[in-house]
């Protein structure tokens, strides 16, 4: 399964849902926000959200800024 995550192409074994992707990337789901194909996915819906070949995923977090 090929995904584009934060603009970079990445290959994964099939994943059951978005929560599995976040875990596979080593990220703490409490500290990030996720967009799938330009739609924001609420944190509570990660386990109900499928991940499909060709998906464009954005994963963001808070950093320092003015």
């Amino acid at each position: 399964m090929n995904l584009t995550i934060n603009g970079e192409p990445r290959a994964f074994e099939p994943l059951p849902h978005l929560a599995a992707l976040v875990a596979a990337l080593g990220l703490d789901p409490r500290k990030v926000a996720v967009e799938r194909n330009l739609e924001i996915v609420p944190r509570s819906a990660y386990e109900q959200t499928p991940v499909a070949d060709g998906d464009r995923i954005e994963i963001v977090h808070f950093i320092g800024g003015g």
Binding site: K31, V60, H61, F62, I63
Partner: peptide, 19 residues
């Protein structure tokens, strides 16, 4: 405090986080 939103660093998910 003001904060910015940016892509996470996928190559090093263990880097320090603001929060």
């Amino acid at each position: 405090v003001t904060v910015a939103i940016r892509r996470v660093n996928l190559s090093d998910p263990s880097q320090p986080m603001l929060v």
